[in-house]
């Protein structure tokens, strides 16, 4: 016999299920189609003509695509590390210290989040031209312009996430640590940092994702030598949309999903930290 539906058992109501289904279709259908058509034999993305993995071969043999992919990964890794360090320190400083002008800094730090990317891109372009940023450096130094651009817009996201995490921190933990004989640094390393870790990982994920798929700012700051994956895809699509693009995108999706899974694994041991 079926139990009556409880007031909070929303997922057992028919219309709620339909609604959920609609939401999922809306969210994921484009991605599912993208992946499905990367296995399509036809050059056109409209009709299914048969299964093949040729496009993956093509994509992997496309030297300029691979180069763009490597650039993207390199940029994402370096800018994530820098963003996490800068964002984490900013969050810690804002959480920890009281100083004149703190509210101002608090507001200014979040500015890159709200400034339209296009403006940031133009600003960076002008800035690099103005200071005469060296060009034609060997790889990966030639990526520095893009990396700096990415750090500028992603470290505030890290700061915001870490800051939110620190709101729940019990300061007497730090006092207890010092009381037990730990120095300032030992306290940070053993007590504060483990608590921040969840926020830092979440922030890193965010920064990594933002960097991997950023188009606008990269478009303004990259040169012919430093094409990234999204920019490359854009130029490929402008010529013609082949399943090769689908295949490349699928690889990128796979890559980010993998990263997320790894990050979540890392987070596991600190479960219950509160």
């Amino acid at each position: 016999m079926r139990n009556p539906i409880g007031p909070l058992e929303f997922t057992r109501r028919g219309w709620v299920r339909l609604w959920l289904l609609a939401v999922f279709v809306f969210l994921y259908a484009p991605i599912v189609i993208l992946i499905a058509f990367s296995f399509n034999q036809s050059r056109r993305n409209i009709v299914w003509t048969g299964f093949t993995t040729d496009w993956y071969g093509r994509a992997l043999n496309n030297a300029s695509l691979i180069e763009a992919f490597t650039n993207s990964i390199m940029i994402a890794l370096i800018s994530t590390v820098l963003s996490v360090i800068l964002g984490g320190l900013l969050a810690l400083g804002l959480y920890r210290f009281r100083f004149p002008g703190k509210p101002v800094l608090d507001g200014v730090a979040a500015l890159p989040i709200v400034i339209p990317e296009i403006c940031l891109g133009v600003a960076l372009l002008v800035f690099y031209a103005r200071v005469g940023w060296p060009v034609g450096l060997p790889w990966p130094l030639n990526l520095s312009q893009v990396i700096i651009g990415h750090v500028v817009f992603s470290f505030p996201f890290v700061a915001v996430v870490v800051r939110a995490r620190m709101e729940g921190f019990d300061r007497s933990l730090e006092e207890a640590s010092k009381d037990l004989g730990a120095s300032e640094w030992q306290t940070f390393w053993n007590v504060t940092l483990p608590y921040m870790k969840t926020g830092l990982i979440a922030g890193a994920l965010l920064a990594m994702t933002l960097s991997l798929d950023d188009f606008v700012i990269t478009f303004f700051t990259s040169g012919p030598e430093t094409i990234t994956f999204p920019v490359k895809i854009y130029s490929m699509v402008r010529q013609s949309v082949t399943p090769e693009v689908n295949a490349a995108s699928t690889i990128l999706i796979l890559f980010t999903v993998l990263l997320t899974v790894i990050a979540l694994k890392f987070q596991k041991p600190s479960e219950g930290v509160g």
Partner: peptide, 29 residues
């Protein structure tokens, strides 16, 4: 400073380190 004083404190909120086991907590100092 607090870490150089010959006193130890039991905090009102206990302030037990949440990411350490009981043994690690006790051994921390």
């Amino acid at each position: 400073p607090p870490n150089k004083r010959p006193v130890n404190m039991v905090f009102q909120s206990y302030a037990v380190f949440p990411h350490m086991t009981v043994r690690e907590n006790v051994g921390y100092g």
